[in-house]
């Protein structure tokens, strides 16, 4: 029963209430992600309606560096892969490997944040600030909200590394790692939409 419910965190030898608890918390976290997804959907809609509102300022075609965005995409996708490796290690109970893959994921996450900050500072030095136009306001807010999520994800990974070190792969730790995984892949998914909606139209134009 419990194995069928959550093969990813391997609760086979756990107490029955642990499986039930994992079921409840994971479902709750999915519900939260649903709400978060709507938040992003509304920001995407806002961005789409603001793209042409440059108020005499620069447009996306003049500003965006598709190379950097592509690099960000690769880094983030790679971090999802390494998180997947951590999840496999977690399932097999290999604590050191799980921690190691999480460290790699954390580094990639921080790398992504670094690339994003580099992009922001380059835009701002070009005079394209969030105050320039409605278009740039919506661009910066959409990306910052995603970046803020990535930052929260990084802090969360750090906390989980500490918890693995202290508690080992205990039931609550495994349950939290499962949810962290959902969160991290969700970040990826949102980024794919950002890349498609924000950067790709610039290339095709």
């Amino acid at each position: 029963m419990s194995e069928r419910q959550h093969p990813g965190i391997n609760l086979t030898h756990a107490r029955p209430q642990d499986a039930r608890h994992a079921e409840v918390t994971v479902f709750g976290f999915w519900t939260f992600l649903m709400s978060d997804a709507i938040l992003f959907a509304l920001l995407f809609a806002t961005y789409a309606s603001m793209v042409s509102r440059t108020a005499g300022g620069p447009s996306g075609a003049e500003l965006f560096d598709i190379g950097n965005a592509f690099l960000e995409t690769i880094v983030l996708l790679l971090s999802s892969f390494t998180f997947g490796m951590a999840a496999v290690a977690l399932k097999e109970g290999r604590q050191r490997a799980a921690s190691l893959w999480l460290v790699v994921t954390l580094l990639l996450g921080l790398g992504f944040l670094g690339l994003e900050l580099r992009e922001f500072s380059s835009l701002i030095t070009q005079g394209a600030t969030p105050q320039t136009s409605g278009f740039l306001s919506s661009f910066f807010v959409l990306l910052s909200l995603h970046g803020l999520h990535a930052l929260v994800g990084c802090i969360w990974i750090g906390v989980m590394l500490a918890q693995i070190a202290i508690f080992g792969l205990s039931r609550p730790v495994r349950s939290r790692l499962l949810r962290l995984g959902l969160f991290w892949h969700f970040l990826d998914l949102v980024w794919i939409v950002i890349f498609t909606l924000v950067y790709l139209p610039v290339v095709s134009a």
């Binding site: 709400s35 978060d36 709507i38 938040l39 959907a41 509304l42 920001l43 806002t46 603001m50 509102r53 440059t54 108020a55 300022g57 969030p130 105050q131 320039t132 136009s133 409605g134 278009f135 306001s137 919506s138 910066f140 807010v141």
Partner: peptide, 26 residues
């Protein structure tokens, strides 16, 4: 989330001078 976005963007307009719902700046 609709309220969060509406209120949050209005706050960004007010605090950071952005242009989501202003009469000027797009």
């Amino acid at each position: 989330p609709g309220l969060t976005v509406a209120g949050g963007l209005l706050a960004l307009d007010r605090y950071l001078g952005m242009h989501f719902f202003t009469n000027d700046g797009g």
